[in-house]
Simulated scan of single mutants.
Amino acid sequence: MALNREPATRWAWIEIDQGALRRNTRAFKNLLGPRQRLCCVVKADAYGHGAVECAKIMYATGADMFAVATVREGVALREGGIKAPILLLSEPPIEAADTLLAHQIMPSIYTAEFALAYGERAVSAGVVGKYHMAIETGMNRIGVHHTEVVEFRRSVEFHRGIACDGVFTHFATADEPDGWDYKLQCRRFEEAVTAMQEARFPCGIVHCDNTPASILDPSTHFDMIRAGIGLYGLQPAERTAPVFPLDPVMSVRARVTRVTHPAIGEGVGYGFTYRVPRARVQICTLPVGYADGLSRTLSNRMDVLFRGSRVQQVGNICMDQFMVAITETSKRQMPEAEIGDAMTIIGRDGDEQITADEHARLRGTINYEVVCDFGLRLERVYR
């Protein structure tokens, strides 16, 4: 983790705004009552923001639990010094049981085969393995079917090596809390929880809310919410933005590595998809490419910020580099760049801003994927 220092080995980096991360975490914590908990989702290396570093900031700001997608992600948190409860949002291979127990990572469970094998490994280790039971309420991805929860609990609850720490489901359409599908999932989840309680099976922490549901439907907060993309300052849906402002945490910047003035008609980059249209066009090279998460589909379609103004990206984006064109017109006096000048790919520069949502629209995807992709290879600086 670099603090307030750019990488010494490359003129390209991600900036993480620690203050914005604290404010966003606090905003989600403030949605909750005194007995409700905040689970911060830090899977995919905290959506490209750096899981260990972000988890430390979140924990200091009120996080009660962390959620990951893979066993390795959970182990990385433990090795990074995170001591809070960690929930694995999937059921891993049975071979992972010993690793889960050794690092106190709670798996999601939805098959009896895994539950019983996990319990056997826990008994052998002299511990009790905690787990959260995933309930399938309509997304048709993972979980015990909502009509079969009592039968499932009966098939595993006898085992002394396991203990249910929580039950949960996941919403497919939480951005539409008035919709029929969302309400059906809510009803199925509530009925499943009630059925287990009436059968005297402990449910532990009851939770179902992802980021949009946490914001839009307080009635489903139950014992805990699972905040994800919103922690990083990105809106999960159009209708959350007006009611729950957030501060973007990630910026992506790079410094110019080369400047040139090609002749009229000369091409730029692979395939010459851009040719210089007039005299005095400055072509600047920046050391970021599609291997760093800057999608090649953005070639000749995106802007970057330089000294508070937008400049056009030109030519095909390469694996490790891309180019921009600085053109002075009668309507805009644009200074030329020099080697070492900083440009902004995602983030704010003066009054201008380029967001992950802008990149997402151009790519035909969602802001989640944009920030995850930038975390592939770029070093992070925490400010």
Rank of each mutant, 00 (worst) to 15 (best):
340 G>Q: 06
210 N>F: 02
310 R>V: 00
234 L>T: 15
230 G>M: 12
154 R>G: 06
362 L>I: 00
251 S>C: 07
69 A>D: 04
275 R>T: 14
251 S>K: 09
343 M>P: 01
92 P>R: 10
258 R>H: 13
148 E>Y: 01
366 I>E: 08
106 M>H: 12
124 S>M: 11
312 Q>A: 04
365 T>M: 00
266 E>W: 07
278 R>S: 14
52 V>G: 09
161 G>S: 07
220 T>N: 12
52 V>I: 13
62 G>W: 13
295 S>G: 01
51 A>K: 01
327 T>A: 07
12 A>M: 02
30 N>F: 08
344 T>N: 02
96 A>Q: 10
268 V>A: 10
115 A>F: 06
139 M>P: 11
46 A>T: 13
169 T>C: 15
88 L>S: 03
196 M>E: 02
18 Q>S: 10
182 Y>I: 02
218 P>R: 15
381 V>S: 03
376 L>W: 00
295 S>K: 06
59 Y>H: 15
297 T>G: 00
320 D>I: 01
337 A>F: 03
23 R>A: 10
257 T>V: 10
243 V>E: 13
252 V>E: 07
12 A>R: 04
242 P>W: 04
153 R>Q: 08
292 D>Q: 08
93 P>W: 13
90 S>H: 10
69 A>P: 00
253 R>L: 12
299 S>H: 03
221 H>E: 08
336 E>F: 15
251 S>N: 07
239 R>V: 15
241 A>I: 13
36 Q>L: 07
267 G>F: 07
253 R>A: 05
328 E>L: 05
173 T>I: 14
369 E>Q: 15
299 S>R: 02
325 A>R: 12
286 L>S: 07
235 Q>G: 08
168 F>N: 00
262 P>M: 09
176 E>N: 10
99 T>G: 04
214 S>C: 13
34 P>R: 07
321 Q>R: 12
142 I>L: 15
266 E>L: 05
325 A>C: 10
280 R>Y: 11
140 N>R: 14
148 E>K: 06
127 V>T: 13
201 F>H: 12
20 A>P: 11
120 E>F: 02
357 D>C: 01
39 C>F: 00
139 M>E: 08
125 A>E: 04
238 E>N: 13
341 D>F: 03
98 D>M: 08
12 A>S: 11
313 Q>C: 11
112 A>L: 01
151 E>K: 07
184 L>D: 00
300 N>E: 05
123 V>L: 14
188 R>H: 14
218 P>S: 15
6 E>P: 03
357 D>P: 02
96 A>E: 14
233 G>W: 10
199 A>W: 07
142 I>M: 15
314 V>D: 05
322 F>Y: 15
328 E>S: 08
342 A>S: 09
131 Y>I: 07
383 R>M: 04
32 L>A: 11
3 L>A: 04
367 N>Q: 08
52 V>D: 12
180 W>K: 11
68 V>D: 09
152 F>G: 05
208 C>V: 14
15 E>V: 04
222 F>E: 14
32 L>P: 02
190 E>D: 15
11 W>I: 01
76 A>H: 06
160 R>H: 11
41 V>M: 09
185 Q>L: 06
350 G>D: 04
229 I>V: 15
73 E>R: 11
83 K>P: 03
171 F>P: 13
2 A>T: 01
198 E>Q: 11
383 R>F: 09
35 R>F: 02
3 L>V: 12
311 V>M: 03
302 M>T: 12
111 T>P: 07
239 R>S: 14
16 I>P: 01
332 R>C: 12
243 V>G: 09
162 I>T: 12
253 R>C: 10
